[in-house]
Design a protein around this nucleic acid. Structure first.
Lengths: 153, 153
DNA sequence: TAAGATTGAAACATCAATCTTC
DNA sequence: GAAGATTGATGTTTCAATCTTA
């Protein structure tokens, strides 16, 4: 996004660094996942979210909630799910309590695709962060990111 | 992007938090800038980058360098510049030393649009960060972001 | 009437091909 | 031939409109 200028506020600088880091990671992951598994980051993210669902009441997400989780519009989510359904990774089913709603399950095929892709994803993430740590503008952010993971996990 | 699960690696968790924060800020800024000034975040970013150019040797960016700065492909940058040129915010001119290259200058109109939009931008940024600080997953990241700005400015 | 999911139209992104200049 | 900018083809995203169910 670009860097230093005398009048840039401190926050704006931080935002630039965040953007830069985000976009680098995103681009790197996208490349790695597409090349190795024909999955975009969004698709990976969707599979991840949906595979965390559990059977039983409250365990499933409706389209709208999925949209929130992957930060997409409802219509984009519909299409994303459709694409992955056509590839056999997902299956829609009706929501038993509200027939307006639609649930989506990850198929066996989808689950194994996700499982296969995860090491690629994690490795690419590691690489990018390793590299970002060498950039003085990004280092503090990378450190915070790592601490964050440790604190919550 | 979504959150906790037993098997999520620490880094992946951090990445989820980063994505979430980035996408929230991005969405908030986009909304504010479009509503108030009919500018997308990308357009704002482009104007910011180009307005930092200075007269004299080495002070101007070629299309390709601009593309890197705003993290877009070359062709997308061409079209972005064209759109803003049509609105009278930018003007292309030939690069004197290499006739393949093209420089882009910010017009008076473009400069005043940018100037008018900056307070909106900064205010929206502040708001979103303020809000994000209340989310325990994001707080450490926000703190790092603020320190970052202070350290470099 | 409102809420959830979908579809249609338009905007904007990427990759590959092209055109000009080095 | 290689590099910089552009154009063409294609895919994804958003907003608005539509359809079904609550």
């Amino acid at each position: 996004m670009a860097a230093n200028s005398p009048k840039l506020t401190a926050l704006a600088q931080g935002w630039c660094a965040l953007s830069l880091l985000y976009e680098r990671i995103q681009a790197h992951l996208e490349r790695a996942l597409l090349a190795g598994h024909d999955l975009s980051v969004r698709e990976f993210s969707l599979l991840t979210v949906l595979s965390r669902q559990y059977k039983g009441p409250g365990g499933h997400l409706q389209m709208k909630q999925v949209a929130d989780a992957v930060v997409l519009s409802q219509s984009a989510t519909t299409r994303l799910v459709t694409r992955l359904e056509e590839r056999g990774f997902l299956a829609r089913c009706f929501c038993p309590t509200d027939r307006r709603g639609i649930y989506t399950n990850v198929t066996e095929k989808g689950a194994s695709a996700l499982k296969a892709a995860r090491p690629t994803h994690d490795a690419a993430l590691n690489e990018t962060l390793e590299e970002a740590r060498r950039d003085p503008r990004l280092k503090p952010l990378v450190n915070a990111l790592e601490k964050l993971g440790k604190a919550t996990s």
